[in-house]
Simulated scan of single mutants.
Amino acid sequence: MNLPRILVDADACPVKEEIYRVAYRREVPVTLVSNAYLRVPQHPLINRIVVDGGFDAADDWIADHVDGAAVVITSDILLADRCLKGGAGAVLGANGRPFTTSSIGNAVAVRAIMSDLRAGGDRVGGPPPFSKEDRSRFLSALDEALVRLKR
């Protein structure tokens, strides 16, 4: 059995510090994947992968490295879908809400509708501002996912 690990879609991730905190406490390795160089703590549990290439290069790297021991952190609905189909142990949004096989279809559909509306010139709002409650929910959800995978 593979040991749990965290894969992070890191370019726009607002909860990196929370991820480090949980990883240190649970002694779980973290890989941050980005298209650009990011500063990360010098720690044996923290690994940085900088991909070059196309727009989806970071997503491709993450999707190619997913298995049942991986907890993926992303706000990208299409990447979440790929990771769930790839057998990820858990996929969490930065707001702490889990993406699941039963919820991802609806999320992909809503994303497509909103994209069509924006392409047609409609003004549609984005996600609500990131809040303290989102941060707290994320910490709890990540901790719970790691505990579940260690069993």
Results as ranks from 00 to 15, higher is better:
Met1Asn: 04
Arg5Ile: 07
Ile6Asn: 15
Leu7Ile: 06
Asp9Asn: 08
Asp9Trp: 13
Asp9Pro: 00
Ala10Gly: 13
Asp11His: 09
Asp11Arg: 08
Ala12Trp: 03
Glu17Ile: 00
Glu18Pro: 00
Glu18Cys: 08
Glu18Phe: 03
Ile19Glu: 02
Tyr20Phe: 12
Tyr20Gln: 02
Val22Lys: 06
Val22Gln: 03
Ala23Cys: 06
Ala23Met: 09
Ala23Ile: 05
Ala23Tyr: 08
Tyr24Trp: 14
Arg26Trp: 09
Glu27Phe: 03
Val28Ile: 15
Pro29Arg: 13
Pro29Ile: 08
Val30Leu: 01
Thr31Arg: 06
Thr31Asn: 01
Thr31Ala: 01
Leu32Met: 14
Ser34Ala: 15
Asn35Pro: 00
Ala36Thr: 06
Tyr37Thr: 06
Leu38His: 04
Leu38Ile: 13
Val40Thr: 14
Pro44Tyr: 14
Leu45Ser: 07
Ile46Cys: 07
Ile46Phe: 15
Arg48Cys: 05
Arg48His: 15
Val51Ser: 13
Asp52Glu: 12
Gly53Pro: 03
Gly53Lys: 09
Gly53Thr: 15
Gly54Val: 06
Gly54Arg: 03
Asp56Cys: 05
Asp56Pro: 02
Ala58Thr: 04
Ala58Ser: 13
Asp60Arg: 15
Trp61Pro: 00
Trp61Val: 02
His65Ile: 02
Ile73Gly: 07
Ile73Leu: 11
Thr74Asp: 04
Thr74Ala: 03
Thr74Glu: 08
Thr74Gln: 07
Asp76Met: 01
Asp76Pro: 00
Ile77Trp: 07
Leu78Gly: 09
Leu78Ser: 11
Ala80Phe: 14
Cys83Leu: 07
Cys83Lys: 06
Cys83Val: 02
Lys85Leu: 12
Lys85Val: 00
Lys85Ile: 01
Lys85Ala: 12
Gly86Glu: 10
Gly86Cys: 03
Gly86Thr: 05
Val91Lys: 14
Gly93Glu: 13
Gly93Val: 02
Gly93Cys: 10
Ala94Lys: 07
Ala94Met: 06
Ala94Trp: 10
Ala94Arg: 09
Asn95Glu: 09
Gly96Glu: 12
Pro98Trp: 09
Pro98Lys: 08
Phe99Gly: 11
Thr100His: 05
Ser102Tyr: 04
Ser102Thr: 15
Ser103Phe: 03
Ser103Ala: 07
Ser103Asn: 15
Ile104Trp: 13
Gly105Met: 00
Asn106Pro: 00
Ala107Glu: 14
Ala109Gln: 11
Val110Asp: 02
Val110Glu: 08
Ile113Trp: 08
Met114Leu: 14
Asp116Tyr: 07
Arg118Ile: 01
Ala119Leu: 07
Gly120His: 10
Gly121Met: 01
Asp122Ala: 12
Arg123Ala: 10
Arg123Glu: 11
Val124Asn: 12
Val124Ala: 07
Gly126Leu: 10
Pro127Lys: 15
Pro128Cys: 05
Pro129Ser: 13
Phe130Gly: 04
Phe130Asp: 03
Lys132Val: 02
Glu133Arg: 15
Asp134Thr: 08
Arg135Gly: 04
Ser136Phe: 07
Arg137Lys: 15
Arg137Met: 09
Phe138Glu: 05
Leu139Val: 13
Leu139Thr: 14
Leu139His: 08
Ser140Gln: 14
Leu142Thr: 00
Leu142Gly: 03
Asp143Gln: 11
Asp143Arg: 10
Glu144Thr: 03
Leu146Cys: 01
Val147Pro: 00
Val147Cys: 10
Val147Arg: 14
Arg148Trp: 01
Arg148Ala: 04
Leu149Phe: 04
Lys150His: 06
